[in-house]
Computed example of a mutant assay.
Amino acid sequence: MAEREPSAHQLAFDVSSGFMDLGVPEYSYMYGFLQMDGHLSRQSRDRGRMTVEINIRDIEILRSFQKLTPYNSTISERVRSTNFATSHHSAIWTLCSLEARTKLNELGLPYGRKSQQIKPPRVPFSRPDYLRGVIDADGSVGYTKQGLPFVSLTTASTAIAAYFCFYAKKITGASRHPGRNERDAIYNILYSKEASQALAAHLYYPGCLALERKQAAADSLHAWVRPPGMKTSPHHRRWREWEDRILLGHSSITAAAEELGRSYQSCQLRQWRLRTGRVSMPE
């Protein structure tokens, strides 16, 4: 299959002069994607490889990574049976360069199992591009069965989950305080309706490097209009430690609710979460 010509933004800088310079939007995106879907492995005598395996439908993003990498790398295909399909066709990008692997490792991409260890970069980086790479690899963009727009992320990393929520609040105003689910200890973070529209428009800006299908899905979200009569949920008021102390210090939930200016139901739920360990007790 013939490779496409590099797009204009991929030719806007010399890839040989600053591989994985996270000040470059394309490299921030690439690093976010590799953190979630890439795997670094090593053997004796400095041998090793970086591999990314994705569905064949998204092979173009691997070709973009190959063009952005000034080291020899290969893209291969394979068909195998999985738990989800009897015939899964995938594309695999393989990069063996020790220099490239060292750079990625120094940026914070660990060798071996990494799902709970990964964190946002410790060096300056392009935030929307980095998070778009994270979403493209381990998130979803589109519409629910009920026809509501959404942007979501699934991750095992506390640091990634916290940073995504922190950044998304700056863009959307919507607060999220996720916990790990009980089944597989994963964070599932969801933004819907107007919040998802704002987030998608910010992350998936025109001309950015992205999975084509997710770019198309993000572009489609702007068409949604809240139906007449659909109520708007107010932003939730976050609990503070001093409020928790007042709540726990009262023998009556009614009295605590009155002092805090909160509803009885809100105080009752918060007290249950504190006493059952769902949230941390105040210091």
Rank of each mutant, 00 (worst) to 15 (best):
S44C: 05
G18C: 04
A218I: 06
A255K: 12
R270V: 09
H236L: 08
A156K: 15
S152W: 02
E283F: 08
Q117M: 08
R278C: 01
G18A: 12
M1W: 13
F84V: 01
R226E: 05
I189S: 06
I92A: 10
R176S: 06
E77V: 12
R213Y: 11
D14F: 05
S90R: 05
R275F: 01
S266D: 12
S251K: 13
N105F: 02
E60T: 07
D129P: 00
S64M: 04
L269N: 10
H9W: 11
H236T: 08
L248M: 14
T86R: 12
V134R: 05
K103H: 00
V134L: 06
F84W: 07
A162D: 12
L109M: 15
R245W: 03
N181D: 15
L148F: 09
K67P: 00
T86G: 03
K214I: 02
R273Y: 07
M230F: 06
I186F: 03
Q268A: 14
I54L: 14
F65A: 09
T276C: 01
P128C: 12
Y264C: 00
V52F: 06
Y143P: 00
Q43L: 11
P120T: 15
R275P: 00
N105L: 01
M20I: 03
L95A: 04
G32F: 10
R57E: 15
A162H: 02
A217C: 01
A185P: 00
P120E: 14
R45T: 09
L98F: 11
Y205R: 14
A100W: 12
G32K: 04
Q146C: 08
K169Y: 13
L109D: 04
A218H: 10
T172E: 11
Q268Y: 14
S44D: 14
G261Q: 10
D46G: 00
H222W: 06
Q35L: 13
R245T: 09
T254S: 05
Y167T: 04
V24W: 13
R183H: 08
G112E: 14
